[in-house]
Amino acid sequence: MIRIIDRTLVILEAFHLEGQPLGEIAELLCTCGANYLEITPSAYRQLGSVQGAQYILRVQSPQEAKAYADCTDIKRFVCKARSDSALRVYPEVKINDIRDFFTVDRFRRCDRVRVCGLADCVLQPISKVFQNLRSMFEGSIEFAADNDCYSATSLTLQWAMLGGAEVVTSFMGMGNMAAFEDVTRLLYFLKGRRSRSALSAVQELEARLTAMLLASESA
C-alpha cells in the first residue's frame, strides 16, 4: 500500500494563514488521499482537531517531541539529520548527489529514514539508484525527491511503482517537491489508488488553495 505524506501545511505556514482555512485544507487533503499530514508544532497547536487526520510533526530536536508524546493523532516525528527511536523521532537525510551515499552511513540502522534531495537521479540509471538507496538503509524509507531537475513527480511515481511504500509531496509542488495533485492523479490512473471522488476533492482543493494564495499574495 502506498502512503502519501503531505507537506503542504508546513509550506503554508510562511503565508501566515489563520487556523480556520488551515483546518479546511487539512480536511480536504485527507479526503484527497493524503495519509499523513506533516505539520510544525506551532501550526499543530493552532489547528485544533481535524477529523481523520494523522500528523507527522516536524521538530527541531528530538527533545521537542517529548511535549507531544501523548498526542494520539501524531503518528511520529521527523527531525533534520537527528533521530531517537524511543521518542519516535526519525531523521531527514539530504542526498544532493548520488555519490553522497557514504555520508549517510550513520543512519543505516534507523527504523525509518526520510531521504530528500536526489534531484539528479534522473540523469542516472534509475533502477540502480533505487537499488543503491534501498541497500543503504535497513529501515523503511520515505521518499522525498527535490524538484531541482523538474523531475520530482516522475521520480516519486517511479519509486511508488517499484514498490516504495511512502512518498512525500506538497500541493502544487510548493517547497520544491513532487506535486501532491499530480501524484494522486497518477497513482489513481496507474495503480487504482483511491476513488474518483478523491479526484473531485483534488479539484476542489486546487480551487480553494489557488484562491487563498492569490488573496494572501495581494494582501
Binding site: Y150, T153, S154, G173, A179, D182
Partner: peptide, 8 residues
C-alpha cells in the same frame, strides 16, 4: 499534463 515530460 502531470509534470512528467522533462524527466521522460
Amino acid at each position: 499534463r502531470f509534470g512528467l515530460s522533462v524527466a521522460n
